[in-house]
């Protein structure tokens, strides 16, 4: 069966939910990775796909038509997703009938994910109005449908984004680090390449002589002294010095930021960040086991 894009304001990305950045050379693999990889992998779990299955990443109004019966799940940014007059619940598996038209609008910053049970055609990285994508190995229904629902994640908008000091944090002046952790920044730009902030001018550290690695979530200081954090479509090799890295557990919040949003940063130790990450993974695995238990 096919999923057809009847309309979209911005292109729809076809993404793989890389589980917490476990790959190098993202930009050269030919695969797009989900900016909010947690939301994408939860969507895949809800529809019984493998965690890294392809799903649709949507950041603007869109209209999709499903040619056949299937099961989908909506995760990520909040938005109004409906079929005719019926609003679809978020973070729940939902059955779609052949010919249904899914309308997505009012996305409030960040990325909304549609995971579809089955396998989306490989080789396409994005879709625009008029495009279609093949879906295979899909089911019309899944067992344990009543268990395929997760509570909404509530982000505390006023909480700072936690950062682990970067590999070259010591090369920045103390004053620069103080400014980073005491200033309220405004999001200037947010896309799949980077999130740029504006607040105070922070002094850069001298460039490295050699190329080094920078993971998704690495924070750098731009030419004009504005901090920016690299996202999935950015190259993971650089000569600039990484000042800090967003903890994995806060990456979904980073992905949700939109221009105009206010944000603060706070330092976090690697040990504390890893404890949070491991706890989150356990929660994910428990949910997976519950949903996919045949004895239910």
């Amino acid at each position: 069966m096919k999923i057809r894009v009847l309309g979209c304001d911005k292109e729809i990305s076809i993404c793989c939910a890389d589980s917490y950045n476990n790959t190098f050379d993202r930009e050269m693999s030919g695969v797009k990775y989900a900016c909010d990889f947690e939301a994408a992998s939860i969507g895949n779990m809800l529809v019984e796909n493998t965690e890294d299955a392809l799903c649709l990443e949507i950041s603007s109004n869109a209209k999709l038509m499903f040619e056949g019966d299937c099961v989908i799940a909506i995760t990520g940014a909040s938005g109004n997703v409906r079929i005719a007059d019926e609003t679809l619940p978020r973070r729940c598996a939902a059955q779609i009938d052949a010919g249904d038209i899914l309308e997505i609008c009012e996305i409030s910053g960040g990325y909304l994910y549609i995971a579809v049970n089955g396998t989306l055609e490989e080789g396409k990285s994005s879709l625009i109005s008029g495009d279609e994508i093949e879906l295979s190995d899909n089911n019309e229904n899944l067992y344990n449908m009543d268990l395929r629902c997760l509570p909404e994640t509530v982000f505390d908008g006023s909480a700072p984004l936690r950062l682990i000091p970067g590999p070259y944090a010591e090369d920045f002046k103390t004053h620069a680090l103080e400014l980073l952790y005491t200033t309220e920044f405004t999001v200037k730009k947010a896309n799949r390449e980077n999130v740029v902030f504006h607040g105070v001018e922070i002094e850069r550290a001298k460039k490295l002589d050699e190329i080094t690695y920078a993971p998704v979530g690495a924070l750098f200081i731009g030419d004009e002294g504005d901090p920016y954090i690299i996202m999935q479509d950015s190259c993971d090799l650089t000569q600039h010095k990484c000042m800090a890295v967003v903890i994995s557990s806060d990456m979904p919040r980073l992905a949700m930021l939109a221009p105009g949003d206010k944000i603060r940063f706070s330092p976090c130790t690697v040990e504390a960040a890893q404890k949070l990450l491991v706890a989150k993974r356990k929660e994910y695995i428990n949910s997976y086991l519950l949903m996919n238990s045949y004895e239910q």
Partner: peptide, 18 residues
Amino acid sequence: ILICGDRSVIVAFPDEDI
């Protein structure tokens, strides 16, 4: 050993000869 977030590290070998 340079910390690079909670999932990666960089092991650097500084030497005059690259």
